[in-house]
């Protein structure tokens, strides 16, 4: 699995990623998913990322939470969630499938 930005979150990330991959391949892709079963693990992972300050190898002064806030990612995330909730993913639809010639 890929590493987390915050090394101390690697473990909880791996637990979440494994859960997600199983759910994604066994339920989501088969169209039988009813809920996101891995959400409780995601919440733990999310908490690890936002509460604790990772010892970043590359940029010790930038911790994750700061990154999310500074870069406006938290806002983008919120918007994306609202988009999805409103089922307004119209702009994310693939561009025109060529229509059959008249």
């Amino acid at each position: 699995m890929s590493a987390s930005l915050a090394p101390e979150c690697n473990e909880v990330k791996e637990r979440y990623d494994n859960c997600f991959l199983k759910w994604y391949s066994e339920k989501f892709l088969r169209g039988t998913a009813t809920t996101d079963e891995c959400d409780p693990l995601f919440k733990q992972y999310e908490k690890c990322l936002s509460v604790r300050e990772p010892i970043s190898l590359v940029r010790p002064t930038h911790h994750h939470q700061k990154v999310l806030k500074e870069r406006g990612i938290d806002k983008m995330v919120k918007e994306a969630r609202e988009d999805n909730r409103e089922n307004d993913a119209e702009h994310m639809k693939p561009v025109s499938v060529p229509s059959s010639p008249s």
């Binding site: 890929s2 930005l5 995601f42 994750h64 995330v77 969630r81």
Partner: peptide
Amino acid sequence: LSTDTIARDFD
């Protein structure tokens, strides 16, 4: 160097 899922939403 790293990849994190920061939001996920299933409708």
